[in-house]
Amino acid sequence: MVEVTEGAPWATLRVSIEQAAEIAALKIGSVSPLPNGEWRITGIRKVGVIRIGDTELRIRPKTPIDRLFYLLSRGNQWGEWFDEDALLSTTDTLHAVMADVFGRWGERVLRGGVLQGYEERHSAEPFIRGRWLVTEQIGRRFGMPLPAELQYDEYTTDIAANQLVRSAARRLLSFGSVPSHARARLHRIDRRLANVNLLTRGDDLPTIRFDRRNERYRPLIALARLVLGNESLEYLEGASSASGYLLNVAAVFEDFVAAEVARHAAASGGEVVSQHVSRLDLMGHVTIKPDLVWRRGGRIRAVFDAKYKIIKNDAFPNADVYQMLAYCIRHNVPEGHLIYAEGEPIPQEIAVQSAGVDGAVVRIYGHAVDLSCPPLEIEARMKAITDRALASRG
């Protein structure tokens, strides 16, 4: 077992050439050989656990695990579903905590009963019910009356929501180093859903539409989708020799910033658009895509970019400022806002003289959000940033 930490300047790995190539291919970080046959990894960009051959690589996050779950909750707009903040130890591994949280929520949700619903079935049966598929009967049975090719609705527990939950429980059980109490909960969930089919790996995850009847499943489905490979979570088995999962914390932070800006900007009207695509040049050769723009009255009035920095380099903050300046000039916005997941000092304001924005000065603001702070302080910080960006922009 090899353990490294996200954000560390570098770490040494004793792995084979093939394993080093796999780590590089998964874009976990930059891998380079050392004279003694070991490998150096720098710029670690993901956290989690993977197994490559007989080696397990664990990547601990620099952000406390309880804060990661807080960012996930707010960024995915799961609501106030997570009230067990104190149960997450900062020394636990991410996959162990994921198994524990999923197990707790699974038992809590299923305590209210296993959800049932109508599912369309196609089967051959010895008696007629539902709709008789005559064309299929002739094509498959060559005129034989039985078994009958049928289509009917069945009221069952084998529905998409339960398939997601059971498949996620099974996935978590396949990981090593899951605490015994969490493993026991996952086994109980699996047994409770014994009549539910597992999802096929590689297929798209089903979409669940929530209403009054299944609303209690929402937090569990959100966790299940995370475990099974939705959005920032990458399940690696099948396409390569690696198995496990990795969490892209930069993507989690970007989702969190987008959700918080949208939440706090709601009172000002307009809309917040993520990943707004446009062309920088007149010929349309260069595409730009700021993380967030606030649009009101048919035009963009504020631009934001989230920056989850792991290691600062000689290009910081110049490259970020150049990028934001291009956004501001293109969209004729006098201010741009860079939001960093850092507690360290950064330039708070950079003023650039430009005739491209109605002859005015373009101001680029840098904002630091310290993710080690309590959630209420983080939310207050995001509200202050949003209010500052939208002030007098209406």
Rank of each mutant, 00 (worst) to 15 (best):
V134F: 14
L236T: 10
Q151L: 06
R279F: 13
L87K: 15
R166Q: 13
Y235W: 14
H331M: 15
H181Y: 10
G238Q: 13
V277P: 00
E379V: 10
E377T: 10
I350R: 08
V257Q: 01
S354M: 02
H337A: 04
I41Q: 05
I44E: 01
G7H: 10
L198S: 09
R216L: 06
I17K: 12
A8K: 03
A86Q: 15
D281E: 10
K289Q: 13
V357K: 00
H122G: 02
H276I: 04
I364Q: 03
E344A: 15
L390I: 03
R141I: 04
P375F: 01
A182K: 03
E22K: 11
V357H: 01
S372T: 15
S32D: 11
N162W: 05
A182V: 02
G143F: 05
G53C: 01
L172V: 14
F127K: 10
R40Q: 14
Q77N: 12
E215K: 08
R40T: 12
M144A: 15
A315G: 13
T91L: 07
V4G: 01
G202A: 03
F175Q: 10
T287A: 04
G297I: 01
R40Y: 00
P375K: 07
Y365G: 05
G113T: 05
G29D: 09
M144V: 12
I364W: 08
R166A: 14
W294R: 11
H181K: 13
R279G: 01
W132C: 11
R108F: 01
R330E: 00
E154N: 05
E84M: 12
A20R: 08
Y322W: 14
L186E: 04
G343W: 08
N76D: 12
A160H: 10
A355I: 07
L371F: 13
R129C: 14
K312S: 13
L198R: 04
H95L: 07
R216D: 09
F253G: 00
I52V: 14
V261C: 05
I28P: 01
H187I: 12
A266N: 13
G366E: 02
A194G: 02
A168M: 07
D100V: 00
Y365C: 13
G366R: 06
G106C: 11
V97T: 07
V178D: 03
L292F: 01
V333M: 04
H122W: 09
L71T: 04
V252F: 06
D281C: 07
I189E: 12
Y217F: 11
S274L: 02
E254V: 05
R188H: 10
E349I: 06
A21F: 07
W132Y: 14
G244K: 00
D54E: 15
L26Y: 01
W81V: 11
L325M: 08
H285A: 14
D100N: 12
I310H: 13
L150I: 10
I364M: 10
A24Y: 03
I128D: 13
W81E: 03
N332Q: 15
R263H: 13
N318S: 14
P179H: 10
A124L: 08
G48K: 05
N197S: 14
I385L: 09
P374L: 12
L71M: 15
L173H: 11
R121H: 11
S16R: 05
G298V: 02
A391T: 09
V361Y: 00
E335V: 07
G176R: 15
F69K: 08
I189T: 00
L173Y: 05
Y322L: 11
P126E: 12
K62C: 06
M98I: 12
E84R: 15
A169I: 02
A160C: 09
